[in-house]
């Protein structure tokens, strides 16, 4: 197997061509090669959810994916998601409810939360807790995160109804 491999992908809408070590995971690629440090690494074994981001529109754990596997993909990191304006309401709700303390889990948590909101699911606390259970937060105790997500999900309900 070659040690390095060339990849071409889209990151936050921009095309990136790079040669990467075949063993480099996507989280490390984004952080170390592209200096997109908003993607956090908490466990590197797929449990904590801190590294959650979007690949081709779906949320994935970037510590479990190799950079090489992202060849040809459309990757969105927290920097891109925040700049897009898509999660402005969620960000405001997180700030309002103090749904983050240290903020280390927050980028991944926002992706998971955005996934819930984008699916137009109802502001049901149990369902939100269930949906976020792949994302660990060691600081908040989760209640404020559930408050924030439910608030935004409820706003969405007034706008266009839930699925």
């Amino acid at each position: 197997m070659p040690e390095r491999i060339g990849i071409t992908l889209k990151v936050n809408g921009e095309e990136v061509r790079q040669e990467v070590p075949v063993r480099l995971n996507l989280a490390d690629f984004l952080r170390q090669e592209l200096a997109l440090t908003g993607t956090h690494v908490g466990c590197e074994h797929g449990v904590c959810g801190a590294c959650t981001l979007r690949v081709n529109g779906r949320i994935v754990r970037s510590c479990l994916m190799l950079a090489a596997q992202a060849d040809g993909c459309d990757v969105q990191t927290i920097e891109g998601l925040a700049a897009s304006g898509e999660i402005a309401a969620l960000q405001n709700a997180f700030i309002e409810h103090n749904a983050l303390q240290c903020g280390y889990c927050t980028p991944g948590m926002l992706f998971a939360a955005a996934d819930y909101v984008a699916a137009r699911r109802p502001p049901n606390r149990e369902a939100v807790r269930e949906h976020l259970s792949g994302n660990y937060c060691r600081c908040t105790g989760y209640q404020s995160i559930v408050d924030a997500v439910c608030e935004v999900a409820a706003q969405d309900a007034t706008k266009g109804g839930h699925k």
Binding site: G38, T39, T77, E79, Q91, G103, Y104, L110
Partner: peptide, 13 residues
């Protein structure tokens, strides 16, 4: 908090 919700924190790594 705005910084941290935009992925613009500065952690050691």
């Amino acid at each position: 908090l705005s910084r941290l919700t935009q992925g613009r924190g500065t952690f050691v790594d």
